[in-house]
Design a protein around this nucleic acid. Sequence first.
DNA 1: GTCTATACCAGGATAGAC
DNA 2: GTCTATCCTGGTATAGAC
Lengths: 197, 197
Amino acid sequence: MPKVTDEYRIAKREEIADAALRAFRRKGFQGASMADIIAESGLSAGAIYGHFASKGDIILDVATRVVGARVDDVQQLMASDPLPPPSHLLRVLMGGMLEDLGDPTILVQLWGEAATDPALRDLAQGVFAQLQGAYRRYISLWHQREHGVSEEEGDAIGAEQVSLFVSGAQGFIVQAALMPDFDRERYLTTLDKYLPR
Amino acid sequence: MPKVTDEYRIAKREEIADAALRAFRRKGFQGASMADIIAESGLSAGAIYGHFASKGDIILDVATRVVGARVDDVQQLMASDPLPPPSHLLRVLMGGMLEDLGDPTILVQLWGEAATDPALRDLAQGVFAQLQGAYRRYISLWHQREHGVSEEEGDAIGAEQVSLFVSGAQGFIVQAALMPDFDRERYLTTLDKYLPR
DNA sequence: GTCTATACCAGGATAGAC
DNA sequence: GTCTATCCTGGTATAGAC
């Protein structure tokens, strides 16, 4: 297979997905029409359907890009020595998310769609499970390092506390998306202060 | 104006709104068609448009019913003596929410819609602000009663800690809606244990 | 691969009879 | 107030030329 053509296809899909993301951000996944995506991309209907089979196909592709990649942040921070406390991981995750997405509104939209769309539901559940597992292991490791507990004890603590940090992330996202005078820094500082170590 | 007719109109609107809620729960606010709502209600198109101006009108009415009424729970608990700790308020709010809605999925859908629909955004923001304010006052009062701090100190603590409890609620809702093996009781117990008093 | 033009259909809303 | 039947817009996807 010709190398140039392959790269072109991938780049084109990304270009279209980026345009679609902008349209979805403004009007929602269902609310944005193919005409919106076409206008946003500067391409034509024919061009887009040459790269995606359907609008649903585009949504799934965009959604996958949107939720991807946060697990890597956990892995990377796990290699640090000394290990920052678990609440600091929240800062890193939210920072990376904001850098990728600009603002978290699209994530809340995605969750809403996931409630009724099976493909998006599976996607969201998979990402939640991955992220929760990574965070759980991080907490366990931190307690082993910082408080010298055994691996078993660390795992027990991780299992117990992880939902607290997951809520911290989800609360950040919902509040940043929907509460107009949300103060990101203040929120993260409060969690630093009150979440367990 | 004839009394019977007025009551009839109100009851009919509620009947239609209930049917619409069932349709929205299954297919989402946008995803459910008027045909779905018509089928679910057992009525006809003409009958429904006699009581609602448009589908958007129905959505707004249903959404208002869905998010209403939690603030009352805070007021009611505020009259208790002794006052339960703030984390217990979370139990009451989530319990009331589940009793009203069956499950929290519809709330996540609502938040997602609110990201792009101005009317729903205003509704959600208003409810968030009310609920946050009530919770803030509850925390303040509890600290005055339990730790004997001044009203000013209590208010400062409330302002600082409230986002923590709001996240606790939002995290509960997201996780209950989208994480398949979410354990409600375990979650609330963990929050009892770790959230500040 | 990409364009324009269009087929085709779903869905919201109305008309008019009862 | 409610029904049935229908209009009509807007939206997805395809056909066929380049």
